[in-house]
Nucleic acid binder design. Structure first.
Lengths: 248, 248
DNA sequence: GCTACCATACTGCCATACAAGTAGACAAGG
DNA sequence: CCTTGTCTACTTGTATGGCAGTATGGTAGC
């Protein structure tokens, strides 16, 4: 039977698999804070919005639940998770550890071949710096991803993306509040270290860079208290001591 | 209506949510190589085995697909993935990066408080060394996890567990073939470095330890060729240069 | 004997219906 | 006013039916 889809708010491609489409769409809406924390979303409600049945939506919910973006309470409902401070810090810690090693690989190995590429991506960030914050985030993402690709660890990047969701939510929450200039300069410092073959220097620069968010985090939490979970921030997280001895 | 479940091979608790149960059961069977790579499994077949409907099984498949344990071919079937060499190496790389930082935290910070605990876990490994390989794996797991817990990064451990699935399959495949003595000695070396507050030494010891599997991997692949994907092993993966200059 | 075709029996995907449980409104009784 | 029981309108969980696409095995034609 032909169902009238004119009540659908959002569009889906009826020929392609629907479940993954809904999943991507919802993921995007949550990260961009279109769907806000604690907001209740039901399978039937979303199904109606997209003009599909409950089943694909349900599958999307399950996957989002694995990502920690929604919590499914059996027989009670599903709602968007608050941003877990612990999850953000864990994701940041993982990212620093991995990218530190990647940076060392680049500095010690044939990273010099990619220096021009990296500098080009940094230029793109400069162009987007003051105009479009979203574009800057994309450029930033591209830069870090390029470093992973350069050492053949691109697949790894995709695997940890689900862990990065919470970090991404923070970034979109603080859109335009980032010290873009400083971040770009830090990127440049990393590449300089790589170009010079200075593994220690490049690593310190990268760790320093990825810790920038830590200093901004308290302010962001204070500004948007009801976006974060009530986890008492007593458990200050540990930070690896930098080689230079500075504690940031 | 009471349905007769006497045709069910495996049991499930009909009161608790079924999907997660099936998921855990299948995950276990795959990792323990009860379900072998390339083996085709269908929703209806598994559903019949557990005496449930296809829907929960489908949800289990989806989650296992996210973990990279099965591949769902639309309209064609679902089969157990071969062990992806790239995935194994990626997981190992991530693990080395993270645990290297954790080790540094322990050596630089209050890791000394936990040295006795770590040594106790190593003793447990010694006891299980020659008797029960499975128990040794559990003890090994407990040791590494304890280090993460000691610096408040225990939650992180759970998050990367899905990435570790492929590594775990390798471990169960090579049950009893591991150089247990050597591994235990390496554990001891790591703890010694922590106890001495020697961050560099402890880190090198840990990286050395986690690279042990790399030397065993080719042999394991040769012995069980049809458990691994046909990815031509041409792309040798990059390894971070150790501080001491040794390349393992 | 060999090849091309086709019927059939699968597969996973989607939609729908039913079941089980919860939250909240609301009225009756203390 | 407060408590309590019930009833309704939700929620997610499970089961089932139908659909479109694919692999396979048998068969007709050469």
């Amino acid at each position: 039977m032909l169902v009238k889809r004119d009540t659908a708010i959002h569009e889906v491609d009826q020929t392609a698999p629907i479940g993954p489409q809904v999943r991507r769409a919802l993921r995007e809406r949550i990260i961009r804070n279109d769907l806000k924390p604690d907001q209740k979303i039901s399978e039937s409600e979303i199904a109606a919005q997209y003009g599909v049945s409950r089943q694909p939506v349900r599958e999307a919910f399950i996957r989002l639940s694995d990502e920690g973006l929604v919590t499914i309470l059996p027989q009670r409902g599903t709602r968007v998770c608050r941003i877990g401070l612990a999850a953000v810090r864990d994701a940041r810690f993982i990212r620093e550890s991995i990218e530190a090693d990647i940076t060392r690989l680049l500095a010690d190995g044939q990273g010099a071949d990619h220096v021009d590429e990296f500098r080009g991506l940094i230029d793109a960030q400069r162009r987007a710096a003051d105009t479009d914050p979203v574009e800057f985030i994309r450029a930033d993402e591209a830069f870090h991803r390029a470093m992973a690709d350069a050492v053949g660890k691109g697949g790894l990047w995709r695997k940890v993306q689900s862990l990065k969701s919470q970090m991404d939510r923070v970034r979109f929450l603080a859109l335009g509040q980032f010290p873009v200039r400083k971040l770009i300069d830090q990127h440049a410092a990393i590449v300089d270290g790589i170009a010079a073959g200075d593994a220690d220097g490049a690593e310190v620069a990268l760790r320093h860079h990825l810790r920038e968010v830590l200093s901004d985090l308290p302010h962001i939490v204070r500004t948007n208290p009801d976006f974060f979970d009530a986890a008492t921030d007593g458990a200050e997280d540990q930070i690896v001591k930098l080689k230079g001895g500075e504690t940031v």
